[in-house]
Amino acid sequence: MIQPTRDTYIFRLGGGPYRRNRLLGWLLFGAFLVCALVAALLSVLLLPTYPHAFTLYLKWQDVLVALLWYIALLSLAGCAMVVRFQYALRAGYTREMLTLVGDDTITVRDLSHKNLASIFSVVATALTCFVVALVGVIPEMLLGWTLSLPHALLAFLSTGIAVLLSIVGLVITIPVLFVLLLGGISCVSFCCKMGSPHTYHLTDHASLMIDGFALAIHAPGSPESLVELDLLAPQDQRQLLDLLRARWIDAERPWNPGLGEEIAAALEEAVIA
């Protein structure tokens, strides 16, 4: 803990959690980078293996190349999000992870390793949505097969069915692609906010709760933050809990009537750890 002024207390990310989360982050970064390189290489190898003349139907090779390019770009986006988290980790370790200012202001960063799980979940969800979108264009790939059938009547009937299925598939594909576009825009906001500091004014409308050795903070008009206390050094954990209890008592216990018991339980857990 650092106390630059009388009423300001700065808590930094502990050395052990910093190194652990940083290692996990670089491992995830490496996995994304390998996926991007492999997908790009496979697409380059696949492109020369089939003709690129214009047709009225989709070639399965084109769909596969599009999927590989998407995987490569999505993996690079995952790398960018991991780098953003690594920057936030560094800031929490060298500057501050949690700051108490006066009796009514707290600034926190969420630097939990669960952010890495969220990054993986975002990438996996985006990939799943794109695969669903590709499923919708499968009937358009079948047109190449139906048009080459030897019997004219069979070719006509099967092509008609494929066209109808293509229309149905587009009903699936277009909304999914639109959702992907909106998701990509929201991912930019998610990336910018990940690990960024959030400031809360501890008024009567604020809520603090400690559960599972994690501090949850909620205030109207601000996103909820969850700070894992075990990211702090053991001594900082106890000092922070003591400061919170003192402020809770001085403020006549408005944030959570049971916060005193929760802090006491957390102090016992900190002592045991």
Rank of each mutant, 00 (worst) to 15 (best):
L165Q: 02
D236I: 05
D211A: 13
L170M: 10
G195Q: 09
A152S: 07
L111G: 02
H201Y: 15
L47P: 01
P51K: 01
L134F: 06
A214V: 11
Q239F: 10
F156P: 01
L111F: 11
Q235N: 14
V34Y: 11
Y50V: 08
D104P: 00
I119T: 08
M194W: 03
L231Y: 12
G260L: 09
I217K: 00
V38A: 14
W255H: 10
L149K: 03
S112L: 08
V65M: 08
S189W: 08
L164V: 07
L165G: 13
I167L: 15
L157W: 08
P4S: 10
V122L: 12
A133N: 03
H218D: 12
I174T: 12
Q3N: 15
V122S: 07
I161T: 15
A266Y: 03
V179Q: 07
A162L: 07
L231Q: 15
A246D: 12
R247P: 08
M194N: 03
R109F: 06
E224Y: 06
L240C: 03
P197V: 10
V82H: 00
L149T: 05
R22A: 09
L259W: 03
L28A: 10
P175Y: 12
A216C: 05
W60M: 13
W248D: 09
G14Y: 03
L149E: 04
L147P: 00
D211G: 06
L76E: 00
L73G: 04
D204P: 05
K114C: 05
D110H: 02
M194V: 00
F54E: 13
L74H: 02
L153D: 12
V63P: 10
G184C: 12
A246Y: 09
A36D: 12
A265K: 06
A88C: 06
T49P: 01
